[in-house]
Amino acid sequence: MSRKRKSRAQAAVALNLAAMLDMAFQLLAFFIFTFKPSPVEGQISLRLPPPQAVKAKADPSVKAGSSDSDKPAGVETLVISVFATSGGRIQNLALGEGAVANVPQLERQLTTVLADADLKFEQVLIQVSPRLQYAELMTVIDACTKQKLPSGQKLTKLSFVELPEGEGG
């Protein structure tokens, strides 16, 4: 009896690893073929209010206190107009009714206007030509989202309005 037990204990247990290795290689092949590293994309976060008729202030130099009575108290809208060439590039820019030469200048003017605590601007309405390319629009959005309100918060409230076709500034 004891001799039998001894012989059983001494028998080496050889695992057949080949089958497991086959399976592991199949899993590896699957992951290698389906692996697609996703690009690191940035994003600009915006709070877009629902579409509504906003009576905008035409001239940014006008003080908020003299605003129309039908606007929500304390909420002023700054209007930026972006006109496009036939190729979809930026042709003209306007801040309120004042023409702006280019996007860097728009950025500088926005900084000046939004830093003024008397002009309680809290949101920006961007009027855009329908054929303007998205990349061009993003340069304007980029200029807006870099701005800070007098309260220290970043400007994230934007609205978009499509200008009528053929409007060229």
Binding site: Q43, L48, L132, Q133, I141
Partner: peptide, 30 residues
């Protein structure tokens, strides 16, 4: 959106989202 997409097309999608109650947006860019 692709960089060459006209604004009217992007605006159509954004307006539709706003109409259905979406308020927070993230514009992806490099």
């Amino acid at each position: 959106a692709d960089r060459t997409t006209p604004f009217s097309m992007v605006n159509k999608v954004i307006t539709s989202c706003q109409k259905h109650g979406y308020r927070s947006f993230a514009m992806r860019a490099m």
